[in-house]
Write a protein that binds this DNA or RNA. Structure first.
Lengths: 165, 165
DNA sequence: TTCAAGTGTCTTGACATCAAGATACCTCGG
DNA sequence: CCGAGGTATCTTGATGTCAAGACACTTGAA
């Protein structure tokens, strides 16, 4: 089955036969698929009155384990947003009583963000929904193919996740 | 090499051993890698005073081939943004003299967006830069692995690219 | 021919994000 | 103990995106 990237690559080979556009076969698909996933997540979460960005923060805290708290800095590395964005997210989640801010007892510069009981419930409910949706999307692939895909993707993400940048 | 998704999955298996979180091995990596790629592209394009969204529009028109014009609707399916966003993008690119708007001779509702000579140059220059960066990122993988990865990703993107949605 | 439904683009208003920089605090060598 | 450099978080201002709906035009069935 052809996809939009096949058409895109064919167009470049016609227009710029001097260039080797093979990298696009992988990375354009990654970018486009991520956008499709964002859309699908937004629609699915809307049933729970939850935005994707809320899900990202709440589940990061949820999987930290009891007492469900992380510093804003730790949340940054998990969600890949800037610090200003995270400050804003925490503000809004606090207003909705899904998280609360506590002073870090070991560092007076620091803050700890903790899930409320309500926030924990939202995280648990929405995770199940997300997994159901993702299973449907991955239905195209066999178990073995999913494993191969995960392994290949890990080789690309690991360098980003393991350097200062 | 371990990545952030390995840690994320391990955390869920500890916190929610009742759930099968295997789908995250693939799709969380796709989302996170896309965010890393966005960041890297933004930095790389900044040298050419170009924003990623500008690149997306200009190159869509460039690879359409002479006379380098598409309707806003066609640009939507290529860039996966909403129509309001595309109107705004075309406005800004027009102000910078990179594209121009023409009436569609066959449909009075319609518009054609055409690349200017300057826009075409920008597209050609920045594409070469993007490919160089992407080749560096993909350096982790052998030629065969890149082929496998592209094929597996195509199976996931094709359903999105070939339905009305 | 006519008009109801469909289509393509644009407008509006709310909002999330980012980059850059400010502020307060910590750390560690001397 | 001091101070310089590093770190954690927040503030600010600009900007890009989205959802929803308005508007003009096209299409096709009667």
């Amino acid at each position: 089955m052809e996809d939009e990237v096949d058409r895109l690559v064919a167009a470049w080979r016609r227009e710029r036969p001097d260039l080797d556009v093979e990298p696009l076969e992988v990375l354009s698909r990654v970018s486009r698929l991520a956008r499709h996933l964002d859309r699908a997540r937004r629609i699915a979460f809307a049933e729970h009155h939850l935005e994707p960005w809320e899900f990202d923060v709440l589940t990061s805290l949820r999987r930290a384990g009891s007492p469900y708290q992380l510093s804003p800095g730790q949340l940054l590395t998990q969600t890949l947003v800037t610090s200003g964005t995270m400050t804003n997210r925490i503000d809004r989640l606090t207003k909705k009583n899904l998280v609360e801010r506590l002073p870090d007892p070991t560092d007076r510069r620091g803050v700890l963000v903790r899930l409320t009981a309500e926030g924990r419930d939202k995280a648990d409910q929405s995770l199940a929904g997300l997994l159901a949706q993702e299973r449907a999307i991955l239905g195209e692939l066999s178990r073995q193919q999913r494993g191969e895909l995960a392994g290949l993707l890990r080789q690309l993400t690991a360098p980003f996740d393991n350097v200062p940048g």
